[in-house]
Design a protein around this nucleic acid. Structure first.
Lengths: 115, 115
DNA sequence: TCAATACTTAAGTCAATGCTACAGTATCAG
DNA sequence: CTGATACTGTAGCATTGACTTAAGTATTGA
């Protein structure tokens, strides 16, 4: 548990940017599934699902194993946690104020406006 | 505090997928900044930064106000929280097991392997 | 052994993205 | 009033991304 050199969480954010991929993650959050099971509710070919799966795996968000002709996939919770942590840390700093923008502007110039 | 009609977090995830945009968010997590301040450390034109800013604002992650000729930007913590929450909820379900994939496979077929 | 199942891989297409250049438009300071 | 400052907006362009179709390769059940 020394250091996660975590495939820069760049890949994770990029992977989660796609709605189809997020749908796959949602499905996997309920438990492992085969590629076909992942594909079944999605409006795209199996081929496309396999491609998305590769992206999720490259991002470390999903892991899979093939047994016989079936590939079973599962969520990698740790990668999810990394993303979660990044957000939590950005929030920590300035998150006290109800509305930081107004507060900041009021502090320097009183009563000015534009958008 | 009735209901956040939250600009589908699709936009938020998409916005955070870009490294430049995440850099802007990181900067803003330290406190409000002008457009030029946001642009200064980034290897792109001001014009590009403004475009990224629009995407962040459309996603609800950033808010801005123009006073005089300076536009001041700040993080919208609530939108960040929504993203955080989505991840937390996906993690909740199956996250107990150390390695859910192996556990699941072991449960159905013992000792088989491929990748 | 043979057909069906469950992926896999490779092209190829088409739209969305991330930039840059360039041309403004409002302030602001002197 | 003038030149600098701080954006703003629009084209144009080179990539990247999300799919599809088509052609496999293992596995499995009868």
């Amino acid at each position: 548990m020394l250091q996660y050199q975590p495939v820069p969480l760049d890949l994770a954010f990029q992977a989660l940017a796609d709605p189809g991929r997020r749908a796959m993650v949602e499905r996997l959050s309920l438990g492992p599934a085969s590629v076909s099971e992942l594909a079944q509710p999605l409006p795209m070919t199996l081929s496309a699902v396999v491609q998305h799966l590769k992206i999720l795996e490259a991002a470390g968000l999903v892991k899979s194993r093939k047994v016989g002709r079936v590939r079973t996939c599962a969520l990698e919770v740790e990668a999810m946690s990394q993303v979660e942590r990044w957000i939590a840390e950005r929030k920590r700093f300035w998150s006290q104020q109800y509305d930081q923008l107004e507060a900041y502007l009021a502090q320097t110039a009183p009563e000015e406006n534009d958008r």
